[in-house]
Design a protein around this nucleic acid. Structure first.
Lengths: 234, 234
DNA sequence: CGCTCTTTTGATCGGAGTCAAAGTCGGTGG
DNA sequence: CCACCGACTTTGACTCCGATCAAAAGAGCG
């Protein structure tokens, strides 16, 4: 069942990019956005694969992606999510290495492909933009380091609570307090760094503590403050 | 017992910095290196503390630092080490946030302080340098993501083997195959993300398997290939 | 030379992983 | 529209890795 999607124009793409990176001129934005480098991808489509040589990066116009690494025994570890306004894959472009992560669509997404050559050219010609990119990389670095500490020191329960809180903050709740991001138990486990069954047991526990409700894959958050409290190991 | 150290000149500092960042002119290097912003710090001295507002970053002229976060219950998680030629603390400067890590001296070190204003000025005036900094941040980001996956998926034994291998590659061995970096069992535990006792038990195990020897804090590596093998969970 | 920090070893306990099996949901095609 | 299939979820039982607590031995330093 193909959905009928109206694809955005280049101007719309450029406008959205301009909201994430404020130091680019209209001319520079126009260079980035031309028609044949935009793509609509449905859930579970791969954007790029770990180990592949990607020559550019992707700007998320809409939708949600997961960025993950495949560890020993093929188990995936989700590193982060990318949503509207985010840039994925630039690390590999900058370092001219093969991708060290994979990216897959979680919520149907519209992506703009940005060739690496154009990106590096912009960095070198516009140092304000370069500064914005440094900031972006440093922000991700800070988050990665934080999560490294959490995963090394907190219990699974604390981490799961934290992950749910983060997802709520990043993607929000609908009018019924149901999380906007669609995520399987297995994916939750792959963020938290635990087994699927452990996530399920803890979610049951949260349910019996009236912290949340679930019907299938839909999670309704009832007591977010309690989750925040749990996430901060006492 | 104060050691007698001959401190390097600004020219020497600038030269070493130029080896790490190749796109700076001599003039630009001279701006970075003036006399009163250099410091000699002994083992266990704090360079900066998590939560403090640092207005600049530090260039490691010599010695070794550990960069760590303090997690719940005060347990430290070592994020990385910095050695000769590395730059620490620039993340906070770039993002203009309080430091989200602490840095402490492991091997007596000579550090050059680089005011944030000068760093950002250089980034904005020299986009090639900006590009080098982006690369640096992206490199650290890639490493952090890798380690995140390892810590989430590998066993303590695998991670300890990996950490030891990394330390050997980064800091080398002396003529007796003894590791150049001085590190306590507790610090090893704080990299691996485990308890001190677990590290001790595993090192005993490695000793009985003739993979390494230890006398006090000195570790002699006998069978590095075996360590590499262990680190790659089968 | 004594004090403190670090290392080592032993014993115990519990969190979380694994395996197995049943139940549920959603989508597809007849 | 309904039946079926595969993917996802749930629950139970069991095991074990690794954390914690305790106590002794060793090393480094003033």
């Amino acid at each position: 069942m193909k959905k009928d999607i109206t694809l955005p124009s280049c101007e719309q793409g450029a406008r959205k990019f301009g909201m994430s990176f404020k130091k680019l001129s209209q001319d520079e934005l126009n260079i980035l956005f031309f028609n044949n480098n935009m793509d609509y991808l449905e859930r579970s489509k791969i954007v790029y694969n770990e180990g592949s040589r990607i020559k550019g990066c992707f700007f998320v116009y809409s939708g949600i992606l997961k960025v993950y690494k495949t560890g020993a025994e093929g188990k995936e570890q989700i590193i982060r999510f990318a949503k509207e306004g985010d840039l994925v894959g630039f690390r590999s472009v900058i370092n001219q290495e093969v991708a060290c992560t994979s990216a897959k669509v979680i919520n149907d997404a519209i992506l703009w492909y940005i060739p690496g050559s154009i990106l590096t050219q912009l960095i070198k010609s516009n140092s304000e933009f370069a500064f914005e990119l440094i900031k972006l990389a440093c922000k991700e670095l800070g988050e990665s380091n934080c999560y490294l500490t959490d995963i090394a020191q907190k219990t699974v329960k604390e981490r799961l609570a934290e992950v749910i809180v983060n997802l709520v903050e990043d993607f929000g709740l609908d009018q019924n307090s149901i999380m906007n991001i669609t995520i399987t138990r297995e994916e939750l486990a792959n963020i938290v760094g635990t087994a699927t069954e452990s996530v399920i047991r803890l979610i049951s526990e949260f349910k019996s503590e009236k912290i949340l409700e679930s019907r299938g894959r839909r999670l309704r958050i009832i007591d977010k403050p309690k989750l925040v409290e749990i996430s901060k190991s006492f």
